Computed example of a mutant assay.
Amino acid sequence: MDAHDADLKKELDATLHARRDLGEEYESALIDSFLEKVEQQVTSTVDRQVRRQLAQQQMVVARGSRPQEHSGDSWGERFGFGMVTMILAIPLSAIGAVNADLPGLLVTWAGIVGVNAVHAKHGWGRFARRGADSSRESRRDSSDWED
């Protein structure tokens, strides 16, 4: 078990204990507080991973070679998309669970898994990059008018 996992487990235990002591009227505030701590933990982990990935890319560029890409989109793009959906899953899960209990939570996670599955299967990173390349071309063409 990671030290961060142990910290979150302690936070969860403290939140549950406080819920028993304070009663149901504070349940929403306690859940929001705990989810905020989870989100901070996820954000710090993502930041650390992104910094590591950027450092690796800078090392590759410094060596003069290109990073290897798999099936048209880089690992960093796939990882970033997955992390964004996991960060968004926290408040969406809370909303689904509060409004519709277990069925709401299940529908929320089915949507999250579905979006990630479609992204993984179709490799939307390639299409987004093509769109960005074509928009750059159109900007180059329109810059002729500015001369």
Rank of each mutant, 00 (worst) to 15 (best):
L12M: 15
L105A: 12
D73Y: 06
V38C: 15
R66L: 15
T43R: 06
S65H: 11
L102A: 04
H4E: 09
D101L: 10
L88Y: 00
A18R: 13
G96Y: 01
V61N: 05
N116E: 10
L54P: 02
A62D: 04
Q57D: 07
A94R: 15
G72F: 00
S44H: 05
S74E: 12
D133V: 11
V84Y: 08
S44K: 09
L105R: 04
Q49C: 02
D32A: 01
G72L: 07
S33L: 07
E137S: 04
R129K: 14
I31Q: 05
E77S: 05
D2H: 03
R126G: 06
W145Y: 13
R136F: 04
Q56M: 12
S74Q: 09
S138T: 09
L30G: 03
G80I: 11
A14G: 01
S142Y: 03
E77P: 00
L12P: 04
Q56H: 15
R129D: 13
V118K: 02
P103M: 03
H17Y: 06
T15E: 11
G111V: 02
E69T: 15
S134I: 13
S138Y: 07
G123T: 00
H70A: 09
L16R: 10
R63K: 12
G96H: 00
K9W: 08
D2Y: 00
V115F: 06
F81D: 12
D147A: 07
M59G: 09
Q57T: 04
E137N: 12
Y26P: 04
L22F: 07
E39G: 11
D5G: 15
G111R: 00
A97V: 03
S44A: 06
V84C: 08
W124F: 13
D73E: 13
Q41F: 05
I31M: 07
E39H: 10
Q57P: 00
D141F: 09
Q68P: 04
F127L: 11
R20W: 10
L30H: 01
V42H: 02
S135D: 08
V50I: 14
S44Y: 05
L12F: 04
W124S: 02
Q53C: 09
D101P: 00
N116W: 06
Q49N: 11
Q58P: 04
V38G: 06
A6Y: 09
I90F: 03
H122G: 13
S74G: 15
R66M: 14
G111N: 06
S143R: 09
E24R: 12
G72Y: 00
D101A: 10
V46P: 01
M59W: 01
L35S: 13
G114A: 01
V107E: 09
A89T: 05
D133G: 03
L92V: 03
Q58V: 12
Q68Y: 06
G131T: 07
